[in-house]
Write a protein that binds this DNA or RNA. Structure first.
Lengths: 342, 342
DNA sequence: TTGACTATCCAAAGCGCTTTGACTGACATG
DNA sequence: CATGTCAGTCAAAGCGCTTTGGATAGTCAA
């Protein structure tokens, strides 16, 4: 069933039927009702491709996901992010197009999505400090919102980020207040903007108390469980071992916890852990009592907000770039305690 | 830059340029070369929408993801599945369209994807034992491949599954051989086909040794960490507590491990654990020595295979449904040991 | 020289929709 | 009565591509 058939069936022109269904005012209420009922009854749905060809709007949002070549994985927070963004999109009649890209070939992917007319806007995931995608998208004139920020980018652009620096600064202060002096940072890849900022927060808090960050206690890698385990195990084997760990993701923190147990220590006693917590659906940080003391910020919420921002940008192309900075909450769980007396 | 402009630039007709680029034989090699070079130089990419309108092929594959209403989450294995499928799709020039759907509204989503002409084929995720989507898609005539199976479905359809029953049967036998008699099953939702089959395998192994499954030691829920923790904690508080746990996912097994530690037991000593392991990128089950004894099957590989099957079905619409059953590997890790002497 | 091919190219129709510009009555206005 | 206004409708063009059905020129055997 297409427009032509429907309009013939109704004895109306395609124009009128199209207008009736799309809410244009030049059609009588009576006709509109008749058309809507017939469309419903005959199960008519406009062909997306034809519609977008005619309007020039793709009615789709692009998400380009880099696949890490070392672990061939998609960032595990993506599922929750898209779960948040999804309903916003579909309420507005947008589809989601995802494009998987090996590492740095992303630029090409963006170019193609744009030139092929596949999408009306893009969410940029995993920005690095200096990220060529931002000027590129600006050049292309394709609306976009960055999930995160790019520290080295000077021009204006829309972004939604959490206050990573402040979150890790507070977490570090919390540990310092508990008496910890040897604090390890198990960070994400530090060319990623979020990880860079977290490190900055960590170092700032230390310096504020006249402590120097110890390179032996700082790691930066892709945030897998095994990475957390190995990093913590190695550090716990040091002569002058850390009494606390500040970790960039729950998954990695689980690895750290495993190493702590293996070393015969108890979480929150022999070794404290604070992690960042994206509040993932399948990996909730406890219920009444949090498992880990954590800096928490829901990535699902970020998805909702970012999607709304992007749709705004698409609706009003001339608008100023919007920004949104969310604060992470510091929640106190059972994984932290006073520094052991040494 | 569109076809019209490109062909004018070359002094050729649109027909010839289109044919040259799409590899039709009715164009001289010399002309083809000239066209290809110009297309490259001028950065020409055909508009996907126009192309698919003209050809009737959408050049896109649909993935409908149910969002669990209780946890508002997307199944965490999806990222890896799509990472596997992605390159197969993009090599063949297909885009990925994903559609998020709250729980059971899926049927409508499939119908719409089809009627709107958004996709040429669909991967069905998370089949239940009796799944209305299968007859629906058959009716619609839309090519599809099911990731998993639907036990109650009698008609033919294409699927790719792992041998869930055999995997859990073997795992149970392994525990029985170690002397365990009270074995708990921490399963996924049992209206899901995979969970149903796993339970069947578990019960079969018990019955083969004349043991009756104990309902107090069997749970079925969405596979989150917290679920594993709670279920295991409650069971460990029983008078006649289990000595081993058979768990349906790594994430849940991590919760089980947490409960075991909390109870003051040691993994592989006081309590053994076997889990199913999807071999997720961010959650590898150890490196040389596996953390958990596990039934392992890579979901990324399943994604690759399923995508290839689907593309085959699309290319050859009249073909017989294909099926593929992958065996899970039983890998022995440090989480299992002989049953404690009671 | 002719007819049959072959190789190479093109004009135009068509995919299913939106949108422009024009038309038709009905009604009010002067 | 002529004119203007307005609500409601439609025919047709156009979005960027593919594909059908020629057209043209060159080749070659009869």
């Amino acid at each position: 069933m297409n427009l032509k058939q429907l309009s013939r069936h109704l004895g109306l022109s395609q124009t009128t039927v199209s207008r009736a269904l799309n809410g244009y005012p030049e059609v009588s209420e009576q006709t509109r009702l008749r058309v809507q009922q017939a469309a419903e009854a005959l199960n008519y749905q406009p062909n997306t491709r034809a519609k977008s060809l005619a309007t020039g709007r793709a009615q789709a949002i692009g998400h380009v996901l880099p696949i890490s070549s070392s672990h061939e994985m998609v960032n595990p927070v993506f599922g929750d992010f898209i779960a948040g963004a999804g309903s916003t999109y579909s309420d507005a009649g947008y589809e989601i197009v995802i494009s998987l890209v090996k590492d740095r070939a992303e630029e090409r992917a963006y170019r193609e999505l744009h030139r092929r007319g596949s999408v009306d806007g893009i969410i940029v995931h995993g920005p690095r400090m200096k990220d060529p995608r931002i000027p590129l998208l600006r050049d292309l004139g394709l609306p976009f919102v960055v999930h995160g920020r790019a520290s080295d980018e000077t021009g204006p652009y829309s972004w939604l980020d959490i206050n990573n620096q402040r979150a890790f600064e507070r977490a570090t202060e919390f540990l310092l207040d508990l008496g910890h002096r040897r604090i390890a940072l198990i960070n994400g890849l530090e060319f990623m903007d979020f990880a860079y900022r977290r490190r900055a927060g960590f170092e700032k808090a230390l310096r504020n108390r006249d402590l120097a960050p110890d390179p032996a206690l700082m790691r930066s890698e892709e945030m897998t469980e095994i990475y957390g385990f190995r990093a913590a195990r190695e550090m716990l084997a040091l002569e002058n071992r850390p009494t606390a760990f500040l970790v960039s993701s729950m998954i990695t923190a689980i690895g750290v916890r495993r190493a702590i147990h293996e070393a015969g220590l108890e979480l929150g006693r022999g070794a404290s852990v604070i992690t960042h917590d994206d509040d993932l659906g399948y990996l909730r940080n406890g219920h009444s009592v949090p498992i880990f003391t954590a800096t928490r910020s829901s990535v699902r919420l970020a998805g909702e907000r970012a999607a709304a921002m992007l749709l705004d940008c698409i609706r009003d192309p001339g608008c100023e770039p919007k920004t949104q900075l969310l604060e992470a909450e510091l929640i106190i769980g059972a994984s932290t305690g006073p520094a052991p007396q040494g």
